[in-house]
Design a protein around this nucleic acid. Structure first.
Length: 475
DNA sequence: TGAAATGTTGGGGCG
DNA sequence: ACGCCCCAACATTTC
């Protein structure tokens, strides 16, 4: 067994798969003395990755490969370790007397408890885990009401964000990677990553993320408010998976928005996007302050709702076979591309929870398995919003009519036609509600294979409202 | 980041 | 010409 050597400085990549403007990495580089040995790691934990869908694994692989080759260009090396985090650091502690680990803080309950365990392990060996703020513009304790308690409503939360926001929150931390002496970079045996077929939209890696951001800055940003709700148009930023894996960071997005405002003046179009970025922030903060949302309603009273647990209905929803074209188009896009347009995300979530009255946790789980951009906080927040179990519950305001949503946001049915091939030749007047066609018309337009609606929206809506009402009466 | 029901208004047809 | 009615379009309220 080799003799244990001196202090090792470790950078632990997690949801920050880039060199550029990486807060913890900037700190590490500043802390490194000329003779210090250092190591870059990513920990491949099979027990966690088994929850990832294949397209998401492909995204992760591509992003890690790109990160690794960026480091290689500087003669530095990324080591991919195996096991869970405690096992990986135990292994390092068996080789090095003392290690100092730098990483960027995560707020998900799982991550918080993992970091606590890692920290305790390291502390036993006079080692440490240092965490920095990078994933969000604000740390959860920074945005609180005047009485010190966290916000549970978005609008006042966002106002507080704007009032406190200054350049320190979004400035480039300038990661001076060139300062490192490559000779001191340790290289350990790396784990292999399995190959999967990527999403047709997102392949992963920082290069793609930057291209998307640039493209959005040039084309979509100044029309964001007016275009973002139409799923047939490329009106959204497509930054979500890159923000999740940190191939592009939140500050780069924020600076892009500010740059646009500087060039073109203050515009509600750009402001709307900034608000969307703050929604992400909001749900992160909610998750941090109310970790019980991982398996329960944000407002616990709604855990008393008696959801349906009908596997047959749920399967139809998963497959995009509900007979509601806009819902089916969304679910088929999810299955095929690992992504759904945000507007349609709300429509399918609303249909599952308010029409089929199936537990939002089932939908949340299915999205977790399928989405490339899956991010716990945004996904959970979005599902609870749709299910009316979250902050600002208000079930009356939270029931979409799938036909009206379809007619309003996909008027010509372009989006529907792209994913629901059975009805692609149906005329506009029937595309949102093929059920209005006669048998002869179904045949005439080649739509005979398309399913009849699983449920009647109007009666389903009434039933759902009465279930919510009953709950508030019993309070 | 709704939808449906209800209320209001104003222009045009028509007796 | 006038007033009444209808109804679309828009606004407000309610769930």
């Amino acid at each position: 067994m080799p003799e244990k050597t001196g202090i090792l400085k470790v950078f632990w990549f997690r949801k920050d798969l880039r060199i550029f403007d990486n807060r913890a990495l900037s700190h590490l580089i500043n802390d490194i003395n000329p003779g210090d040995k250092y190591l870059f790691i990513y920990i491949k934990n099979k027990d966690r990755l088994k929850f990832y869908g294949e397209m998401r694994l492909a995204f992760l692989k591509k992003s890690l490969e790109e990160l690794s080759s960026t480091l290689k260009e500087k003669n530095l090396s990324l080591s991919i370790l195996k096991g869970n985090s405690v096992e990986a650091f135990s292994m390092l502690l068996s080789k090095y007397k003392q290690i100092s680990v730098c990483s960027n803080r995560q707020i998900e309950p799982y991550s918080v408890s993992r970091d606590k365990k890692v920290s305790e392990l390291l502390n036993q060996s006079a080692s440490e885990l240092k965490l920095y703020s990078d994933t969000m513009l604000f740390e959860p304790n920074e945005i609180v009401k005047d009485d010190g308690t966290p916000y549970s409503v978005f609008t006042p939360f966002s106002k507080k964000c704007y009032s406190l926001l200054n350049e320190n929150h979004y400035s480039d931390s300038r990661t001076l990677i060139d300062k490192l002496n490559p000779e001191n970079c340790i290289k350990l045996k790396s784990e292999k990553l399995e190959s999967y077929i990527p999403s047709p939209i997102f392949k992963g890696g920082r290069q793609e993320g930057l291209e998307f951001l640039k493209d959005f800055f040039n084309k979509g940003l100044s029309k964001y408010k007016s275009q973002r709700d139409f799923p047939a148009i490329k009106g959204t930023s497509l930054m979500s998976p890159h923000l999740h894996f940190g191939t592009v960071n939140i500050r780069e997005c924020w600076r892009a928005a500010l740059k646009k405002i500087k060039e073109k003046g203050d515009s509600p179009e750009v402001k709307t996007w900034m608000n969307e970025l703050l929604w992400r922030e909001f749900y992160y903060h909610i998750t941090f302050h109310s970790p019980y949302v991982i398996d329960g309603a944000f407002k616990p009273v709604y855990d008393k709702l008696k959801w349906n647990y009908d596997k047959t209905l749920f399967k139809k929803w998963c497959e995009g076979m509900t007979g509601y074209p806009i819902v089916d188009a969304g679910m088929r896009q999810l299955n095929k591309e690992g992504w759904i347009h945000n507007r349609v995300r709300m429509v399918v979530a609303m249909f599952l929870t308010k029409d089929l009255f199936i537990d939002w946790k089932w939908g949340e789980k299915y999205f977790t398995e399928k989405l490339v951009d899956l991010d716990f906080a945004s996904n959970n927040g979005g599902w609870q919003w749709s299910a009316s179990t979250g902050c600002d519950a208000q079930p009356y305001f939270r029931i979409f009519n799938p036909y009206l949503q379809s007619a309003r946001f996909d008027a010509k049915g372009d989006y529907i036609r792209k994913y629901v091939k059975e009805i692609r030749n149906v005329p506009e007047k029937f595309i949102h509600k093929p059920d209005d066609m006669t048998k002869e018309q179904y045949i005439e337009y080649g739509a005979s294979e398309y399913p009849k609606p699983l449920i009647d929206h109007h009666s389903a809506k009434e039933r759902t409202i009465s279930r919510f009402k009953k709950l508030s009466e019993n309070k």
